[in-house]
């Protein structure tokens, strides 16, 4: 119980710090990959505090409420996860959070966010099957949906769930909002969607979306960690290293691919879910 509280409090305090730092290193790394010097590592924090200083502009008053709910439920998702609760509960709370963001975008009544929101729905459709397969895989492997039980199991899940791991890394590209699948919130200027989902959000509201994104990233890396945790120090270290490698691998992918259309995103991620994910589940089942 005490351990659970410590983990949740650590998540609440450290996740934005780690998430922001990762985002900063990500930007420097991207710049270096493009032959540029890049911003300071702390740049995402400067951006965040700047956004807090800006004049608040809202198109529709209710949008701030929805975005606050989005942030809240992303945090709650992470808390559930780090408290070691049910994996399915975690996944569906995250879905709830995403739905709040989509409603916020629709509530602005503006063309670009609505287009972005529609694409976000398609993205959800693309990654949800693989996320569920991951949860099912963990259940078959460890006999429990509870994160606490999975972490404390004495076998490392990774060797048994390589296919699921690969599939999960694949859909992480969508969740991290990286090219080739950054369909709903293109983070590069001069694209057909302006800023997609977040076009109408500025100042504090945008800052909330940023920090929610950092919370979400850390939580998703926690998922990666789950594949390696086996209760030993070695497992913990391997897990942490693989989390970092995965994150920067996504940066690398981001810089090497042009954006694809939504149907490619759906086809590819369903294909991955059916082949890598399903086959791995069947193998696990007979093991």
């Amino acid at each position: 119980m005490v351990k659970m509280i410590i983990l949740v409090v650590a998540y609440l305090i450290l996740a934005p710090v780690i998430g922001g730092l990762l985002a900063g290193i990500d930007r420097v790394l991207s710049a270096r990959l493009q032959g540029r010097q890049g911003p300071p590592v702390l740049q995402p924090f400067y951006d965040f505090f700047k956004l807090l200083e800006k004049e608040p502009i809202t198109v529709n008053n209710v949008q701030d409420f929805y975005v606050t709910c989005f942030l809240l439920f992303v945090i709650v998702t992470g808390c559930f996860f780090f408290a070691g609760l049910d994996l399915l509960l975690v996944i569906f709370t995250l879905t709830l959070a995403s739905v709040f963001l989509i409603i916020a975008a629709f509530s602005t009544n503006s063309a670009y966010p609505q287009l972005g929101a529609e694409r976000e729905l398609l993205q959800m459709m693309a990654y949800e099957p693989m996320v569920l397969i991951t949860a099912v895989g963990f259940y078959i492997f460890s006999g429990s949906f509870a994160v606490a039980d999975i972490v404390s199991g004495d076998k490392m899940a990774f060797p048994y769930m390589i296919g699921i791991f690969a599939g999960f890394v694949f859909i992480l590209t969508i969740k991290f909002r990286k090219s080739p699948f950054d369909l709903s919130m293109s983070h590069h200027a001069h694209q057909e969607l302006v800023a997609g989902l977040k076009t109408e959000f500025s100042g504090k509201t945008l800052a909330m979306i940023e920090i929610a994104h950092w919370y979400e990233n850390v939580f998703l890396l926690g998922f990666i960690f789950l594949f390696f945790a086996n209760g030993t120090i070695a497992g913990t270290i391997i897990g942490a290293v693989v989390c970092l490698v995965t994150y920067f691998f996504e940066t690398f992918i981001d810089n090497n691919f042009a954006r694809m259309k939504w149907n490619v995103a759906i086809n590819a991620s369903w294909l991955v879910a059916i082949t890598l994910g399903m086959v791995n589940i069947v193998v696990l089942y007979f093991m």
Binding site: R27, A31, P39, Y46, D47, A189, V194, S202
Partner: peptide, 18 residues
């Protein structure tokens, strides 16, 4: 890369609200 204004944290947004 030659001038790289992102060194100063400058981003080209394309969105007036940002």
């Amino acid at each position: 890369p030659m001038y790289d204004v992102e060194r100063f944290g400058i981003i080209n947004t394309g969105n007036p609200k940002h």
